[in-house]
Design a protein around this nucleic acid. Sequence first.
DNA 1: TAATGTGACTCAGAAAGATACAA
DNA 2: TTTGTATCTTTCTGAGTCACATT
Length: 561
Amino acid sequence: RWEEERYPEGIKWKFLEHKGPVFAPPYEPLPENVKFYYDGKVMKLSTKAEEVATFFAKMLDHEYTTKEIFRKNFFKDWRKEMTSEEKSTITNLSKCDFTHMSQYFKAQTEARKQMSKEEKQKIKDENERLLKEYGYCVMDNHKERIANFKIEPPGLFRGRGNHPKMGMLKRRIMPEDIIINCSKDSKIPSPPPGHKWKEVRHDNKVTWLVSWTENIQGSIKYIMLNPSSRIKGEKDWQKYETARRLKKCVDKIRNQYREDWKSKEMKVRQRAVALYFIDKLALRAGNEKEEGETADTVGCCSLRVEHIKLHPELDGQEYVVEFDFLGKDSIRYYNKVPVEKRVFKNLQLFMENKQPEDDLFDRLNTSILNKHLQDLMEGLTAKVFRTYNASITLQQQLKELTNPDDNIPAKILSYNRANRAVAILCNHQRAPPKTFEKSMMNLQSKIDAKKEQLADARRELKSAKADAKVRRDEKSKKTVESKKKAVQRIEEQLMKLEVQATDREENKQIALGTSKLNYLDPRISVAWCKKWGIPIEKIYNKTQREKFAWAIDMAEEDYEF
DNA sequence: TAATGTGACTCAGAAAGATACAA
DNA sequence: TTTGTATCTTTCTGAGTCACATT
């Protein structure tokens, strides 16, 4: 297995062979009867302009097509694709009527749903063929699954939150944009007929197979392997091992930064307070970002004065810091945290004579912080604290919440609650599902029905008992037994439903997936399952079991993070 | 030098798609 | 048995982190 293989420093593989990427299907022009209207009049668009128009039409129902920035960016990029005639006619987006196009696409979606079984199967088979041919590569001696072998199709860029580039045209990626990475002695993938690759290279110090430069931010996109692959699994394992090394020295580090709160040097104090937040609140490092290029979000080091409020006293607690800022993906972080007096006083100092838009930690950035962390422990960076605190929290919570006498569903509820504690710590949120209220009501009515059923069963049991008392024969005794069993079964079903309701309610706005997949040492979960006799399938689905195969292999019931 | 840029990788929630379940 | 719908799974691709090169 891959756990045993070793490579010299920086070398990621010796042999790499793959088939290259799958390109987005070419644009299919709309049928003649689907019309676009400008200023109330039918207008036939050139193919290029029409394609971009369809991107907008497909999003018509979405809120962001009403946003000014989105519309402005879209219109600007759309005009670039128009012929000069179109350009001179179409001068106002508000006069464009995409509704007919939009209806056509909705009808198409509907038609796809209504397809016969055979037609659906045909599509499925084709997808499978594609996966079989392009979805795998050979890295060293293993056939590995590729994560994203399909090139992103063209469309309109949708950033998260208040992104200044929303609505811009994401251009179509051509073979001429593509860099292929594979080994010299492999069969080099051939570009589509009539095309050439931008470059073919043989760099075994990186893990990607294909790359191209995207036109919105000018950043590089990659095709890489699936999480189940050796190269990803090994790295994942390493990540948790680093976090476990932090566990051994975290007390020392904590004492150190507490000392540094008193330092004469401003830089050191800021570093120490920031690190305290990263450790205590599991904040992200917070790199600087180029203004105007992305949504305005921050992490710890990039916090601004306007993102915190200091309360010498709040709701009976002393020295409370109120955080309110947008973090990664523009997810709001809101928290009121009582801190130590010394931290509080330092924050007051940092905020002195500053404007709301000034940096809170003006003498600090992620590079300075990470250099310092590197000195404290090899391989230590800001994000290791997140991994460490997430995993240790799961372990503690599992110990605290698991009741040995509980049945399996109740134990799983405890697991989910432990998982939830981590998700809350890491601020992993989701939009409440659109059908949440409804599904909650459905569940409640199920519970009510089950309760009635239970009452009936109990009544029947009672009368059966009475009956048996009178008759005193074998048959009626047996009836009592079976009625007892029925009551028990219904009680269990009821309990299961109630547990489910609790779980769902508590989970309304919490996303468990990210922490489960990226922050929790899977060996903790595997060990917990073994210890309590919970089938691993109850915790990890098939994909997750593939990703965590190394942990399932490795961890025994006594594993300690 | 510290600031800035570049590249490669992890982590993120929404949306689409597949499946299970109830009517 | 079929069909509609709720839920679970997978896909998608944007948004971070962090190391290292360049100026």
